[in-house]
Design a protein around this nucleic acid. Structure first.
Lengths: 191, 191
DNA sequence: ACAGCCATGTAACTCGTTACATGATTAC
DNA sequence: GTAATCATGTAACGAGTTACATGGCTGT
């Protein structure tokens, strides 16, 4: 009877995955990395969750913590993924059970209920969304720039992050187009 | 000193919103409606949550419950939004504080970690996603068909649901295009 | 008779959040 | 000196899930 490793929440694997890019970050740095990458297509966990998650992963032997300085002067703690961590993560990555993406779109939700507000409100809603979409797109654009280009061998290790960032940028672009269309549609049948 | 109405979670307002389309559904029917519409751009709550949410809304006076048959033979309970419910919902709809959509995209997350698996795995991941995307698109397509057309006055009340459904369909289409691109990109630099 | 749907609810639990608490280091 | 940033954690709470429990009604 083999002991199946217990399934962790996706966020745990996400953090574990962020530990496979080389250096041994502190919890604080890991949170920053999550804000830079994860946040665009997964929820970036709160600072406090990063720490508790690292605690759990450590208990399970999937990461090893190392104190930055010995004894009573400890300033910070660096985390490294263990061999077991890599194994469990690979296993999870290979699982075909990838769920469908879940979207929580408050703007679509409010637009759905447009019959309850004045037309001007719906227009303003979409216009505001368009603005925040542009901000987001620029933020992700900056991240994308930092990932180099496919031809450059120095950036080979960012090949997949690059693909995902391009995916996100494409999403923002198509979202932008569609929202413009919807604004047009609102205008055209303002009776 | 005026008593501010306490802010409810978005899901409460979403359910409240689904009660503004006329009939007085049971909890069970409301759940079905959520599965038909809400699910494509907001999480459809579990059956048990629908009931507890309706309990809360009832306590707050935002909906009124009516037993289907009197006394000891009650079979089901129908819910109707109250005037206060409509007021609170309108207030919420007008709030400019619309947060940015939050996406949880397990496929993008796994692709990001492509350096940990064989190229074939990433290809299979995207291919599977493409398949489930098509299923989803067809499901939403069926919903869209039931909402009629802009010109038809009989379907005037579905004007906004129609826009949102079209938005969703456009999203699925662009997602499909991009995933095909990514598959091509995977193929083209399989070293 | 039995499956499947209609219908309602409770209990236990997990994920993830905000608020709180603390303190060192760095830059101005 | 003081503000921002680096750094780590605990406590309380809320949203939402799954599992469980119950039972009537409908079609074959």
């Amino acid at each position: 009877m083999r002991q199946e490793p217990p399934d962790l929440p996706t966020t745990s694997y996400a953090l574990l995955g962020l530990l496979t890019f080389g250096d041994d970050p502190t919890g604080y740095e890991l949170k920053q990395r999550a804000d830079n990458t994860l946040r665009f297509y997964w929820a970036s966990p709160a600072m406090s969750q990063v720490y508790s998650e690292l605690g759990r992963l450590s208990d399970l032997g999937l990461v090893r913590a190392r104190d930055d300085a010995p004894a009573p002067v400890r300033r910070s703690r660096r985390y490294r993924i263990t061999a077991k961590g890599r194994r469990d993560l690979s296993r999870w990555l290979r699982e075909p059970s990838s769920e469908f993406p879940s979207l929580k779109h408050p703007v679509a939700l409010r637009l759905l209920l447009g019959h309850l507000v004045e037309p001007e409100q719906s227009r303003a809603l979409l216009q505001d969304y368009l603005d925040s979409l542009d901000v987001r797109r620029q933020e992700l654009g900056a991240v994308r720039e930092s990932l180099g280009e496919d031809q450059d061998p120095a950036f080979e290790r960012y090949r997949f992050p690059r693909m995902v960032a391009d995916w996100g940028l494409d999403y923002y672009a198509s979202e932008r187009r569609m929202v413009m269309d919807l604004l047009e549609r609102l205008r055209s049948n303002l009776r």
